[in-house]
Amino acid sequence: MRFLSHSIIIYINSSFIRFEKLKFNKLGGVIILSRTKQYLRKNGYFYKKEYIRPLLTPDNIYIFRFGRDRLDNRLIIRYSHKWTGRQRINEIDLRLHKQKHPRIFENESELLNYLEDHLLKHEAKVRAREAEKKREGKKHAANGVSK
């Protein structure tokens, strides 16, 4: 009996320690969208994070601005906490290139799928525009030199 009670106390203490570690990690900062952050860093995007705790709503808001040169893309994450202390994402709004109407996602996987597809297409368009400007600049320079 003594051994059984001792093992139960050890089990309760070890689960309490795990719970405390989990709680301590969350106090260090908001751990949201870690896969999205890794994807953006890997592809050369910079980002800036802001945290808002509105007074009148139970949700917390996390604003995440990102871009290559300018931070003109924005993610707005509305999340709350479950009774266990874990974070639950309620909604992710994505506004790329200063859009007025956001795209709304329910989870990070849907967001990543959209970003992988859309950002690659957008980068190709930007590169094509830059190449076109360089060609026009060379034509104007050649015309100016020959005069």
Rank of each mutant, 00 (worst) to 15 (best):
residue 39 Y to M: 07
residue 31 I to Q: 11
residue 32 I to L: 14
residue 65 R to E: 04
residue 116 E to F: 06
residue 142 A to V: 07
residue 143 N to Y: 05
residue 65 R to N: 08
residue 135 R to S: 06
residue 27 L to W: 10
residue 116 E to V: 11
residue 146 S to T: 08
residue 21 K to F: 09
residue 147 K to E: 08
residue 104 I to D: 04
residue 8 I to P: 04
residue 107 N to S: 05
residue 28 G to K: 12
residue 139 K to F: 07
residue 91 E to Q: 15
residue 12 I to A: 11
residue 32 I to E: 01
residue 70 R to W: 07
residue 34 S to E: 09
residue 108 E to S: 02
residue 103 R to P: 05
residue 49 K to S: 05
residue 67 G to R: 00
residue 144 G to Q: 07
residue 142 A to Y: 08
residue 134 K to P: 00
residue 11 Y to H: 13
residue 50 E to Q: 14
residue 1 M to Q: 08
residue 26 K to G: 02
residue 32 I to R: 00
residue 56 L to D: 06
residue 117 D to V: 15
residue 36 T to Q: 02
residue 112 L to K: 04
residue 102 P to T: 09
residue 135 R to V: 06
residue 42 K to G: 02
residue 115 L to E: 02
residue 95 R to H: 13
residue 40 L to A: 01
residue 88 R to E: 12
residue 55 L to Q: 07
residue 122 H to Y: 07
residue 5 S to I: 10
residue 88 R to A: 13
residue 22 L to G: 10
residue 9 I to P: 06
residue 97 H to C: 03
residue 107 N to G: 09
residue 131 A to W: 03
residue 115 L to T: 03
residue 93 D to L: 08
residue 27 L to M: 14
residue 111 L to K: 01
residue 93 D to S: 10
residue 96 L to E: 07
residue 16 F to I: 12
residue 2 R to E: 13
residue 61 I to K: 04
residue 76 I to S: 02
residue 130 E to M: 03
residue 94 L to D: 00
residue 102 P to W: 03
residue 95 R to Y: 14
residue 2 R to H: 15
residue 81 H to K: 07
residue 100 K to P: 04
residue 9 I to H: 14
residue 55 L to A: 11
residue 86 R to G: 15
residue 40 L to G: 00
residue 118 H to V: 07
residue 62 Y to G: 00
residue 34 S to N: 11
residue 71 L to I: 02
residue 82 K to V: 10
residue 5 S to D: 15
residue 64 F to H: 00
residue 41 R to V: 01
residue 87 Q to D: 15
residue 53 R to Q: 15
residue 8 I to G: 14
residue 23 K to I: 06
residue 60 N to Y: 06
residue 11 Y to Q: 15
residue 46 F to L: 04
residue 25 N to L: 09
residue 61 I to L: 09
residue 78 R to I: 10
residue 60 N to W: 02
residue 34 S to P: 01
